[in-house]
Amino acid sequence: MSENEISLVALFEKSTDTAKAIDDLHTLGIPDDRMVVMTDVPYPEQALGRTREWSSLPYIVLAGAIVGLLIGLFLSAITPHLYRLDVGGHPPVGFPPAAVITFVFTMMAIIVSTFLGVLWEMDFPSFGPAPYHKAVTDGQLAILIEFSPDLDDKVNQVLKANQADYIGEPEMISL
């Protein structure tokens, strides 16, 4: 956030108003990356007039799965050869047990990488001060906007026109 920019938070009651306000803000020339919408309910993608975000989560999970597969293979099929215990002519590795271990390790890695991946994607944990409003978890839809000072009046106008319950400086809350 650069110094000479104004940031505002506006709270709405209804999702239709919010979507309308976002559209109007777009026409004012405020791009999507200057707006953050906060809700207490997951709205369907594009419900609020915004484009879908690209997520690298599936790739993180895929990479995790491959790592898990390799760890599983290493433990179940390679370590018995590395640390050979002569078991009287029996083979050190059997296919079915190796399959079980490899499978389970792959699944474990998928789970763990999904979790770590989603935290990474969300940039969590982020406890530092962040613009937020507590009314969000009470069902209000909040738009957080950053724009240059010359748009101040127009933005306020647009927000009021769309029945914003509250318009004001966003509080920096250490979450």
Binding site: L85, D86, V87, G88, G89, H90, G94
Partner: peptide, 14 residues
């Protein structure tokens, strides 16, 4: 033999 998780029981070459 195969069910022991730590190879406490196993088959020797003889």
């Amino acid at each position: 033999e195969p069910v022991c998780p730590v190879f406490a029981t196993y088959h020797t070459p003889e």
